[in-house]
């Protein structure tokens, strides 16, 4: 069967995460939630430690801790704290506590690197089912709430006037973020999950005229980075997760450069047109 090939499983896992990360990543960019994504992702390592201690499934542990982290940050939002400071404290202390907690788990050999940077080549059939289940859930949720999410992102007063509760939409994004973190853990690890959310969306921005176009383009860039990164990691014998993110970052750099050149060209054209 085709799923018996570990490379096929890896590719499918990566594409699943990239597809779910694309629309969510766009909202992370639009709403300036990058640090929020980081905090949620870093808390995941605490989830790993807890699930090892309690010998539950890693996925469940990570999901619960990420959800808790996301909810705490959501609750504290708008309570008069400086958000970037608060998130910085939460993100890194969650990571530190997680790493300390993992060291207490004796008797079990843990490949910490696998959780920090992911281990996409070790994705099994059950992992694949969880990843695609989680990704499908997030994509469906985004599709269902899309207009309401967009209106809330545009302006909370406009949302209220149309009978939309922006806090509920924020909660939906928060929950989706926790799910994506939980399913992406195996693919890119906690340190690079935020990169997978942000970079494809940011790379898609200069070539998008509508929010929908940006989400679709981000999905394409994320998918290309995942498949290309897998291939490149195989050729150069490099760690897979970081290679995927490196490729995405390269695409982002190219996209920014192209946008810059296009702007210069249009300015030159405009000034040439003005002289005649």
């Amino acid at each position: 069967m085709i799923l018996d090939d570990f490379l096929v499983r890896a590719a499918l896992a990566g594409v699943g995460v990239a597809l779910a990360a694309a629309p969510l990543g766009c909202f992370v960019v639009w709403r300036r939630m990058a640090f929020f994504g980081d905090a949620t992702a870093h808390a995941a390592i605490l989830g790993v430690a807890l699930s090892l201690v309690l010998s539950t499934s890693i996925f469940a542990g990570v999901l619960v801790v990420s959800l808790l982290m996301a909810l705490i940050v959501s609750l504290l939002n708008g309570k008069g704290y400086a958000m970037d400071t608060l998130l910085g404290v939460m993100a890194h202390s969650a990571l530190a506590f997680g790493l300390v907690a993992v060291s207490f788990v004796s008797g079990i050999r843990i490949d910490l690197m696998a959780y920090l940077f992911g281990d996409i080549l070790a994705v099994g059939k059950v992992d694949l089912a969880i990843i695609w289940g989680g990704a499908a859930l997030v994509v469906a949720l985004m599709g269902w709430r899309w207009s309401r999410l967009l209106t809330s992102t545009l302006n909370t007063d406009l949302a209220h006037a149309s009978g939309i509760d922006p806090r509920r939409e924020q909660l939906i994004l928060t929950l989706s973020l926790a799910v994506v973190v939980a399913v992406a853990l195996k693919v890119v690890g906690v340190l690079l999950i935020a990169a997978l959310l942000l970079i494809p969306a940011a790379a898609a921005r200069p070539f998008s005229r509508t929010p929908e176009a940006m989400a679709l383009l981000a999905a394409a860039i994320g998918t290309a980075s995942t498949l290309g990164g897998l291939q490149a990691a195989y050729w150069f014998d490099t760690p897979t997760g970081p290679t995927i993110v490196s490729l995405a970052a390269t695409l982002f750099a190219l996209s920014s450069l192209a946008a810059h050149l296009r702007l210069k060209a249009s300015r030159a054209l405009a000034s040439a047109g003005g002289r005649h």
Partner: peptide, 15 residues
């Protein structure tokens, strides 16, 4: 927000 691409006609269709 500058990161949010939006045409006039798309804005008209929200929500």
């Amino acid at each position: 927000d500058a990161t949010l691409p939006m045409t006039v006609s798309r804005l008209m269709g929200l929500p």
